[in-house]
Nucleic acid binder design. Structure first.
Length: 918
RNA sequence: GCCCAGAUGGCGGAAUUGGUAGACGCGCUGGACUCAAAAUCCUGUGGCAGCAAUGCCGUGCGGGUUCGAUUCCCGCUCCGGGCACCA
C-alpha cells in the first residue's frame, strides 16, 4: 500500500465530522482544558499559509491535552461584523450578510482541509442575532451599572439612585465623567431628564461628549487602537480630532484592576509591557491654582508628577479643547485666541503629530502660584492634551523639555531648581539632584522632595495625591451599518433601554449602505427604525463589541436564557491557552479583560481574568523571487551576471520558480509582455534573486494552504509549519524545505508497508528501541509544554532514524500516539491498520520510564573550587560516594590538585562534578 | 525620544539555560540504482592551512567575570515590534 495522503486525509476528516469525535461536553470526572484561537474575520481573500500557523499550534496542544486525559474545549467561530464587508457592500450593493456568509463558507472549507479538532457544534458568528443578543445584553448591563470606587467594582445603577435619594451625592465615590454636588432634596426635585443626564455621567456604558477620532472618509469615529500614526487602521484615511457626543465604555474605571491583573497572567513580558504602557499609570498630585481673568477668579486644578518643581512654575498651559479656554480668555485677547483655535482645529491628527513646531497663544489671564504667591501667565498650546489629567498644566521649563521648548519660543522665564543643573541649552528632566530656589524644599534630594511637596500641599488644602491613567474610555459607537444595533431608544429625548426580554434588536434592512445625505448613519435609511414609536439609536457597535465575550459564549453557545449558563461557567471557567496575533494587544485583549471583569463584578462569570496563558504566534513572511530586466530591453539577466548591466528588479510569481531557478517557458506565458523575453543564463539556467517580505498578492509570493494540501497533504503542512521555527518568531515560508518533513512521513509509512506486505510484527523491542522511544516521550512532553514544537519534530526524525527498520508493534503503537497531535491523519490511519477500532484521539499519552533512557556513561568536567579542572568519564549510574572515591584515586595522579584535600563531592546528574577542597 | 524583543554556516534554525557550538531539515558535493529522468538510498558539508593525522580561527562589535561564556555583567552597532507631546 502506498502512502496516499489525499485518500487518507479525506477519509478521516469525514469520519471525525460524522462521528463528532471532537465534541466536548461537561464532564466533572475529568479536568477541563480550554484552548482558544483568536477567531478570524472572514475576508474575501481566503487563507494563506501564514494564517493557520496559530491554529495548528493550538490544535497540536489540544490533541496533546486530550491524550493526557483532559476534557478539552477547542471551539472556532467567526468575527463576522466589520468594515471590509461593508465597504464592499457600498461598492456593489450586495448585502454584507451575503458576502460574509460566502466568505465564511470558504474559510470553513480551507480550515477543514487541515484537519483541526474543533468542536464545530459550538461555532459562533458575531453577526448572528442569536449571538449578538448577548452583546446587546452586556451593553444594557453596562448601561445599567456604575463603578463604585470604594468597593472597587461595578454595581447596579439602582443602588446609586437609592444613595442619591437618601443622601444626595455626598459619600458616593464613583467613576464619573463630570461630578456635581447635590443634596437628597435636590436630587428628588430633579426632572426625569435632569436625573437621566446626571446618571449618564456615572453609567459604565454612557453617552458623553469627548474629543474623538473622526474619520471623514469612513464617515465614522474610531477608538484609539483603531488609529495608527494619525491614519485609520482600516483603509489608511486621515483622522481628525473632533468633539462629539458618542456612546462610550468606562474602561478607565477599570484601569487599576487591568494593570494589577497582568501580574497574575502567563503572558509574554513584551505583551504585558504593551498593556502597561497603554494603561499608563502615573503617580502624582492634583494642585489647585487660583486663576484671575479680569475681575473673575476661579480655582483651576492641574495634575503633575513633579510637585517638587512648583517653585519653578513660570507659566500655565491649557489644551485648546479645554473648557477653561473660554473662561480664561481675556476680551482683549479673544481675536488671537480664536484664530489660534481655528488653526489647530483644521489640522489632521497626522499633521499634529508630524509637526514639531511649537505653537501657542496667551489668554490674557494669570494664575497665582499657591506656594510662592507669584503671578504667572496662562497660555493655550497644542502640546497639552485635553484628554489627560485635567487638560491644564503648570509649566516648569527648567525641568521639562516640552515646557522648555515653549518657554524658549515665547521668551518666558526659566528658573532652575536643581543644584548644578545647566539649563542654558536644554532642560534638566532627570529626577535626581538637590533642590535649590525652592523654599522649604531646599537641600532635599528630588526623590525626597516630591513626597515632601505633596505632603505640604495636602496639609494646606491646596491639593492631594492622585494616580492618573493614560487609558481612555472606549468610544463605542460607529456610524456604520454592519454592526450590532444599540438596544436603546429615545423616549422624549431620554436614552432608554429596550427591555431585556425583547432582545435582540435586529439589524434592519436598508436600501443602501452609506450615510444619508444629511450625514446620518446608514440605519437612518431603515423604514420605521423605532421602538414603540420612539426613535432607536442609529449608530452601531464597533468591531470589538462582538469579540469581547465570545470565549464565554463558546462555553454554552445555544443557551437562550443566559450568555453562559452557571453550570457551564463553573466548569469551563476561563481560557487556559489563548493563541493569536500580537496586533490585538491594546484592542481586543484590553476590551475583553474589561468586559470580563465587568461581568465578574455582577456575578455572571466566576473568573476575573479571561485568558490565563497567551501565546503570540509570529508572522509567516513570504519569500519573493526577482528577475532582472536590462533597462530598455526585454532581456533578463541571471542573478550572478546582473552586476555587468543596468537592470530593473521585477517580482516574479513564485509558482514559476523552483529552487530559485526560473521556468523560462512558464515565464514567457505568464504575461503577454514577456512572451518574447530573452535571457542571459549562467550554466544554462536562470537564477532568480530573492528576498523575505510580507506575504501578499502584490509581491507574487502568496502560498495557498490548499495547494500545499494537494501536493503534500495536510499532515505535511502541519509538520512543516511547526518545523519552520519557534512559534512566536516571525519567519519566512520557503516551500522548497517542505520535502524534508514529507520524506519523514513516507519513511514512517515504510515501516508499516512494503508494497502490499504489512510488516508489523509482535516481536519484543530491544533495549535500544525502548531507549529511543522513551527519549522521544520525554522530549515531546517537555517540548509541547514549553511550546517548542519545532524541536519535537526534529526529535521525531532522529527517533525514526535510530529505529532503522524496526516494524514492531510495541514500538510503533506508542510512536503513532506521540505523532498524532502533529500529523493526525496518518497516525489515525496507521493506528486503525494496527487493529484499533476507536479513534487515536481516545488513546493515552505513553508513560515515560526513565529507566530505559539511562546513559551508560558520560563525561563530567571536574572543577576544583574554581581553579583547575579536568574531564572524567564515569558511569552515569555511579553514586556520589563512588565518584568521590574515583576522584580521590585521580588525585594521586593529578598534578593540578596540589596539597589540598577533598572534603566533599557533589554530583549533579548528567552535568558536573563539583569538588570542594580544603 | 522612551519601552520591549532579537542578532549563531549558503538558508530555516538546535544547544539539556555556564560544560564537546552548528542538532534536525533545506540547499550544495560525490556516489549507488536506472538506457535516462523522477523517486529512493549512501557519503561529505562553519572558515582557513594541509594528501593526511592535525592545527588555528569562529555564535553582530569592544571590554569584563569564570578553570570554562552563544548563555552572565558593562559599553556600542544593526534589524524587528510597540508607544509617542500623557505633564
Amino acid at each position: 500500500m502506498e502512502y496516499d495522503f489525499k485518500a487518507i486525509e479525506k477519509k478521516w476528516q469525514e469520519r471525525w465530522a460524522r462521528e463528532k469525535t471532537f465534541r466536548s461536553e461537561i464532564d466533572s470526572s475529568k479536568p477541563k482544558y480550554y484552548v482558544l484561537d483568536m477567531f478570524p474575520y472572514p475576508s474575501g481573500a481566503g487563507l494563506h499559509v501564514g494564517h493557520p500557523l496559530g491554529y495548528i499550534a493550538s490544535d497540536i496542544f489540544s490533541r496533546y491535552k486530550r491524550l493526557k486525559g483532559f476534557n478539552v474545549l477547542h471551539p472556532m467561530g467567526y468575527d463576522a461584523f466589520g468594515l471590509p464587508a461593508e465597504q464592499y457592500a457600498i461598492q456593489t450593493g450586495q448585502h454584507p450578510g451575503v458576502t460574509t456568509a460566502r466568505n465564511v463558507a470558504r474559510y470553513r472549507e480551507q480550515l477543514d482541509r487541515i484537519g483541526f479538532s474543533y468542536d464545530w457544534d459550538r461555532e459562533v458568528r458575531t453577526c448572528d442575532p442569536a449571538y449578538y443578543k448577548w452583546t446587546q445584553w452586556a451593553f444594557l448591563k453596562m448601561f445599567g451599572s456604575w463603578y463604585d470606587n470604594s468597593l472597587g467594582k461595578a454595581r447596579p445603577i439602582e443602588d446609586l439612585v437609592a444613595a442619591f435619594s437618601a443622601h444626595g451625592s455626598a459619600g458616593v465615590d464613583a467613576a464619573c465623567s463630570n461630578a456635581r454636588a447635590f443634596s437628597a432634596e435636590e436630587w428628588n426635585a430633579f426632572t426625569e431628564k435632569e436625573k437621566s443626564d446626571i446618571l449618564m455621567d456615572y453609567r459604565i456604558a454612557y453617552q458623553g461628549e469627548s474629543t474623538v477620532n473622526w474619520c471623514p472618509a469612513l464617515g465614522t469615529v474610531l477608538a484609539n487602537d483603531e488609529v495608527k500614526d494619525g491614519y485609520s487602521e482600516r483603509g489608511g484615511f486621515p483622522v481628525f480630532q473632533k468633539k462629539m457626543t458618542q456612546w462610550q465604555l468606562r474602561v478607565s474605571a477599570y484601569a487599576g484592576r487591568l494593570l494589577e491583573g497582568l501580574d497574575r497572567l502567563d503572558w509574554t513580558d513584551s505583551l504585558k509591557e504593551m498593556q502597561r504602557n497603554w494603561i499608563g499609570r502615573s503617580e502624582g498630585a492634583e494642585m489647585v491654582f487660583k486663576v484671575v481673568c479680569g475681575s473673575s477668579e476661579y480655582d483651576m486644578t492641574i495634575f503633575t508628577t513633579r510637585a517638587d518643581t512648583v517653585f519653578g512654575v513660570t507659566f500655565m498651559v491649557l489644551a485648546p479643547e479645554s473648557e477653561w479656554v473660554e473662561k480664561l480668555t481675556d476680551p482683549s485677547r479673544k481675536a488671537e485666541v480664536d484664530a489660534y483655535l481655528e488653526q489647530v482645529k483644521k489640522k489632521t491628527e497626522r499633521e499634529r503629530i508630524a509637526s514639531k513646531a511649537v505653537t501657542g497663544v496667551f489668554t490674557g489671564s494669570y494664575a497665582i502660584n499657591p506656594l510662592t504667591g507669584g503671578k504667572v501667565p496662562v497660555w493655550i498650546a497644542e502640546y497639552v492634551l485635553a484628554g489627560y489629567g485635567t487638560g491644564a498644566i503648570m509649566a516648569v521649563p527648567a525641568h521639562d523639555s516640552r515646557d522648555y521648548a515653549f518657554a524658549r519660543k515665547f521668551d518666558l522665564p526659566i528658573i532652575p531648581l536643581i543644584e548644578g543643573a545647566d539649563v542654558s541649552s536644554s532642560s534638566f528632566d532627570a529626577k535626581e539632584g538637590r533642590m535649590v530656589n525652592s523654599g522649604f524644599l531646599n537641600g532635599l534630594d528630588v526623590k525626597e522632595a516630591i513626597p515632601a511637596a505633596i505632603d505640604y500641599v495636602e496639609s494646606h488644602g491646596i491639593g492631594r495625591r492622585k494616580v492618573n491613567y493614560r487609558i481612555r474610555d472606549a468610544i463605542f459607537s460607529r456610524q456604520r451599518y454592519w454592526g450590532e444595533p444599540f438596544p436603546i431608544y429615545y423616549k422624549d429625548g431620554i436614552p432608554t433601554p429596550v427591555p431585556m426580554e425583547e432582545l435582540p434588536v435586529t439589524l434592519p434592512e436598508v436600501d443602501r449602505y452609506e450615510p444619508t445625505e444629511q450625514g446620518e448613519p446608514p440605519l437612518a435609511r431603515a423604514e420605521d427604525w423605532t421602538y414603540r414609536g420612539w426613535p432607536l439609536e442609529k449608530s452601531t457597535m464597533p468591531g470589538f463589541a462582538g469579540s469581547s465575550a465570545y470565549y464565554l459564549r463558546y462555553m454554552d453557545p445555544r443557551n437562550d436564557s443566559a450568555l453562559v449558563g452557571e453550570e457551564a461557567d463553573r466548569y469551563w471557567r476561563n481560557v487556559d491557552l489563548y493563541i493569536g496575533g500580537t496586533e490585538h494587544a491594546t484592542g481586543h485583549l484590553i476590551y475583553s479583560r474589561f468586559w470580563n471583569k465587568f461581568l465578574y463584578d455582577l456575578g455572571y462569570v466566576c473568573e476575573d481574568e479571561p485568558f490565563m496563558k497567551l501565546i503570540n504566534q509570529g508572522m509567516i513572511q513570504g519569500r519573493s523571487n526577482f528577475v532582472y530586466r536590462i533597462v530598455g530591453t526585454n532581456t533578463f539577466v541571471s542573478l550572478g551576471l546582473k552586476d555587468g548591466y543596468e537592470t530593473t528588479e521585477i517580482h516574479v510569481d513564485i509558482s514559476l520558480v523552483r529552487n530559485d531557478r526560473l521556468d523560462l517557458d512558464a515565464f514567457r506565458k505568464w504575461r503577454p509582455e514577456y512572451g518574447t523575453a530573452e535571457f542571459i543564463l549562467e550554466d544554462g539556467e536562470y537564477v532568480c534573486g530573492w528576498a523575505v517580505e510580507k506575504m501578499s498578492k502584490s509581491m507574487y509570493n502568496v502560498v495557498n494552504p490548499d495547494m500545499v494540501c494537494d501536493t503534500y497533504g495536510a499532515d505535511t503542512l502541519r509538520l512543516y509549519e511547526m518545523f519552520l521555527g519557534p512559534l512566536e518568531q516571525s519567519k519566512p515560508w520557503d516551500t522548497k524545505g517542505i520535502d524534508g518533513v514529507h520524506r519523514f512521513l513516507r519513511k514512517l509509512w515504510r515501516l508499516f508497508w512494503d508494497r502490499d506486505t504489512f510488516l508489523v510484527t509482535d516481536e519484543a523491542p530491544t533495549p535500544a528501541e525502548l531507549k529511543t522511544l522513551h527519549k522521544l516521550i520525554a522530549k515531546e512532553q517537555s517540548d509541547i509544554e514549553s511550546f517548542s514544537f519545532n524541536t519535537t519534530i526534529s526529535a521525531f526524525m532522529i527517533a525514526l532514524g535510530e529505529l532503522g527498520n524496526c516494524s514492531k508493534r510495541a514500538v510503533l503503537e506508542p510512536f503513532l500516539i506521540l505523532l498524532s497531535p502533529f500529523a493526525p491523519h496518518v497516525a489515525e490511519e496507521l493506528w486503525h491498520q494496527l487493529g484499533h477500532s476507536e479513534s487515536i484521539t481516545y488513546a493515552s499519552f505513553p508513560e515515560y520510564n526513565p529507566a530505559y533512557t539511562v546513559e551508560d556513561s558520560c563525561t563530567y568536567p571536574v572543577s576544583f573550587n574554581g581553579k583547575t579542572r579536568f574531564m572524567v568519564d564515569l558511569p552515569r549510574s555511579m553514586s556520589p560516594s563512588d565518584v568521590d572515591a574515583h576522584i580521590r584515586s585521580l588525585e594521586q595522579t593529578s598534578r593540578y590538585v596540589g596539597n589540598q584535600r577533598i572534603v566533599k563531592v557533589i554530583v549533579v546528574p548528567g552535568r558536573i562534578v563539583n569538588v570542594v577542597l580544603k
